[in-house]
Every structure is written in structure tokens, then in C-alpha cells.
Write a protein that binds this DNA or RNA. Structure first.
Lengths: 179, 179
DNA sequence: ATGTGCATGTAACTGGTTACATGATTCG
DNA sequence: CGAATCATGTAACCAGTTACATGCACAT
């Protein structure tokens, strides 16, 4: 589902063929594992089916025809909703990062809203972890304690990053307001 | 696949029924989302198929019969291999944490080996991220830069945790040696 | 000739989730 | 009387991966 929306987001920036999408995703391999044909073409098909994109076939001599996909108004609305939709039970950093990339193409307040939402989500998760560690059985198992601590320290660093960036961005926004 | 091995790991500690597994996993909801029947029973079936576990049916009056699963020798070997098997392209913290919990029931050197392996994996991922940020196109997109920075800061905190714990554990091990 | 780039896709599989289905017992 | 606990499972679906399949053009 995420990849589907991410591709939709790319198409919101400019119309592309499946092949173009593949090329684009190659530079994001740290975020999305392998941008193989097997994920992209089926995703494009469902986007088409839902009428979130349209196709134009470009016929050229000497080369295989390209199918260029263009986002529709309905597609933009769906994308908007996806960006704002909570990422759900923390753990999927990737889902957040995908949204972050897309949200950066909207106005700053949208961007800030996303980060704040993520902040709340991670804080909730952190609370969950803390509660779990207070549970009777948890304290006994060494591995469990360490895994919890690992997860907690990662959550902490996420919060630190979010707070830092939220601070930075909101400062920038107010600077713009002053100008 | 991970859940399957994790359940196998639980059975290595003591024999249990599917219901027991479900109850145990409930306390680990921060690690494994929902320990629903739909994931557990099918997993047990495949463990049985592979002869990594055996079943004993406990018939009792007044209560539904329990199927108690017990790990086999082949099961233990499979578990051993899983613990040592690299967790693969970083991102799955959960896969690592599951292994960490299981590895804590082995000797300390096994535990240390796992953490060192994870350290190498995360360091490699960090390098990937750094390389990506050096790429021409990446620097232009704000969202992309931020997402990269987010991922980097998380990787950094993982490394810090691993180094700290590796230091602590190896110190403990050498203290034991001195005694 | 061999491989790389352009360009499309399908099929089978994996690892999981959600919801459904059943049925007795015990506790408040 | 209703809810929770004990106890088993199935079926449909979802998002994604791997591997397969095709075919022409251009460069080494």
C-alpha cells in the first residue's frame, strides 16, 4: 500500500512511465529495497483501476512504446489523504520517511503537522515500551530487557531528531513571517 | 518466517500449546503486533510438517483438549542456525530483537557474536546512507535529505547502543574469567 | 557475440493480518 | 445473564519479492 502511494506521489511531481519510476526508485534503495518490475507495474495497474492516474501511450520508432502515467484530481485527493493519515503502530520508520518526502512538496505547515503526528506516535510507543518493562515477567529475561532497551534508545533518538527538526522548521517559518 | 522461528525459540525453552504461545506473545506486543490465532496456528503446523516439533494431545474432561508442542533435535539445530543467520538488509530492527532475545539463552559468546554482526550490518547501512546523500540528485530534494538524516541519526543511535552494550558485556565476560 | 539500456509485463510464492467459526466453563 | 478465559482452527486478503519472459538497439 505504501509503495503504491509513494509512486502516486512521484507522479504528482511529474508524469512518468513505469520505467522512469523504476529508475527514480533506484536512487532510493535505502528506503525501498528493490524497485523491481514486479512491484511497480502491478501498482500502476491498481492506480489506473482506481482512476488515480491516466495513461498516454507514446509510440516511437525503433523503441518500445512508453506508457506515461499522469495523476488525476482524484489521485491528488487520495495522495493528500495518505500524507495526513497516521502511519499506525510505530515501527515503520519507512512509512514515515515516505510520507516525509512527499509532505515536503506541500506547504510547511503540512510538513510540520506530519512531524508532530509522528512525534506523538513515537512518544506513545515509548510509553508502551516503558509500560512493558514495568511488567512482572519482563524483568527476568535478559534478552527481553536488552531488546526493550534497544527499542527505547532508538525511540529516544527519533524523538530527539523530531524535536530538533521541529524547532528548526518552526523557527524558519516564523523568520519568513517576520520578513 | 521470523515469527515461526521465534515461536520455535519459545518451544525450546519449554513445551507449550498454541494457546500458551498466544498468551506469551501478548506480553511482547511491542515487538510483535498482534499475536492472533491466524499467525500462530499456521506457524505451528509448518513447524510440525518440518518435524522441528512434535505434538502431544492432552485430553481432559470438561476442557477442550490441548495440543502441546515440543521441540525436536532437528528443531534445535534449525533454531541455532536462525540465530546465527544474518538479519539481512538493515531496517528490520524487529528481526534483530527477536534474535537477541533468543540468543540470550545461549552462551555469552553467541550473544556477543550476534551483536557484532548487527553492528557490522548497521555500519554498512550507514555507509549506504552516506553514499546516497553524496549522490547528485539527492541533495536537491528537501524531504529526501531530511528522511536520509532521520535514518542516519537512528543508525547512529543503534551503533552507539551496540558499542555500549558490547563494551559492557565483554567486560562482564572478562570479569568472570578473572574470578 | 555479449552485455547493457530501454521497455513492458506475469506467476508463484511468502509472511503475515483480519475476520470468521466453534464450543465449553467459570466468574461476577 | 453476560463476559471473560480456555482452546482450536480456517479463509480471504494484502503488500511485496523473486524469478521468469520478451524484444529491440547500441556499444564494446
Amino acid at each position: 500500500m505504501n509503495l503504491r502511494f509513494f509512486i502516486l506521489g512521484l507522479l504528482a511531481q511529474r508524469s512518468m512511465s513505469g520505467y522512469d519510476v523504476k529508475g527514480y526508485l533506484k536512487n532510493l534503495s535505502w528506503l525501498i529495497g528493490s524497485p523491481s518490475a514486479g512491484s511497480i507495474y502491478p501498482a500502476l495497474r491498481t492506480l489506473l483501476r482506481d482512476e488515480w492516474v491516466t495513461v498516454d501511450v507514446e509510440l516511437r520508432e525503433d523503441r518500445p512504446p512508453r506508457k506515461v502515467y499522469t495523476i488525476t484530481e482524484a489521485g491528488r485527493r487520495a495522495l493528500d489523504q495518505w500524507v495526513d493519515r497516521p502511519v499506525g503502530p510505530s515501527g515503520s520508520m519507512k512509512a514515515f520517511m515516505m510520507r516525509l518526502i512527499m509532505a515536503s512538496h506541500y506547504a510547511p505547515d503540512r510538513f510540520v503537522a506530519l512531524m508532530r503526528q509522528r512525534r506523538a506516535e513515537v512518544a506513545r510507543y515509548q510509553q508502551d515500551l516503558t509500560n512493558s518493562s514495568a511488567l512482572p515477567g519482563a524483568a527476568t529475561d535478559l534478552g527481553q530487557r536488552m531488546a526493550l532497551d534497544y527499542a527505547l534508545s532508538v525511540a529516544q533518538s527519533e524523538l530527539a531528531w523530531l524535536d530538533r527538526e521541529l524547532g528548526r522548521v518552526s523557527q524558519e517559518v516564523s523568520l519568513v513571517e517576520v520578513q
